[in-house]
């Protein structure tokens, strides 16, 4: 415990160096110019804060990413939140959240008005039609990749959860949020009642 805390405290003195304005602009920049969301942005965040500005240690960054992934919601916002909090406390947290959603708010609200005015155009319609096929294809590949990576640990349990949630989602009108909640409860129940080695 003692050993774990020491570098953290030492580092927190260093953290005072970044101003809120600088924090805001770094996160704003990363969120404006990183396309594709999710996992593509993590190396960029880590480059900026760990290597360029040397504000966060490598180990802390990987812990931040782990938490960002285990919480719900967009990972970029989660990771930015933690970085802001780590560097400048609660003020930093709010600045970081604001900076991480601002590019989206501006770009997508403009995009909405553009989409709304041209989506009936035959050329745009034709382009969107092929794009809709592309995104469906990308999703099916992504789903298969996710199935594969979920089979690495507890394959029988994972297959069961996947099949049941797929069927319940497809065939019933049960709210998706409720299915998510139930699966969390099942996870907690099974992994609390049984030992990990008993679960296949």
């Amino acid at each position: 415990m003692e050993k774990q805390n020491k570098p953290v405290n030492k580092a927190s003195i260093e953290y005072k160096n970044i101003s809120l304005i600088k924090l805001f602009f770094i996160i704003l920049k990363i969120n404006t110019f990183t396309f594709g969301g999710g996992y593509t942005i993590i190396p960029v965040l880590s480059d900026e804060f760990v290597f360029n500005h040397k504000l966060i240690s490598k180990e802390e960054m990987s812990e931040i990413v782990t938490i960002a992934q285990s919480a719900p919601g967009p990972m970029v916002v989660n990771a930015s939140t933690l970085i802001g909090y780590r560097l400048r406390g609660v003020k930093g947290l709010f600045i970081a959240v604001f900076a991480s959603v601002l590019p989206c708010l501006i770009i997508i609200s403009i995009l909405y008005y553009v989409y709304n005015s041209i989506s009936d155009n035959r050329w745009v319609k034709s382009a969107l039609s092929v794009m809709s096929g592309v995104i469906s294809g990308v999703l099916i590949v992504t789903t298969f990749n996710m199935i594969k990576s979920n089979l690495k640990e507890y394959p029988i349990f994972s297959i069961g959860m996947m099949v049941v949630s797929f069927l319940v989602g497809l065939l019933t009108n049960i709210n998706t949020g409720i299915i998510v909640l139930f699966s969390a409860l099942i996870g907690i129940a099974i992994f609390s009642l049984l030992k990990s080695s008993q679960i296949k």
Partner: peptide, 14 residues
């Protein structure tokens, strides 16, 4: 523990 249940279920929902 919750995540162990959530991850595969979310794949089904996706």
């Amino acid at each position: 523990k919750a995540l162990k249940g959530l991850k595969p279920a979310v794949v089904g929902l996706i």
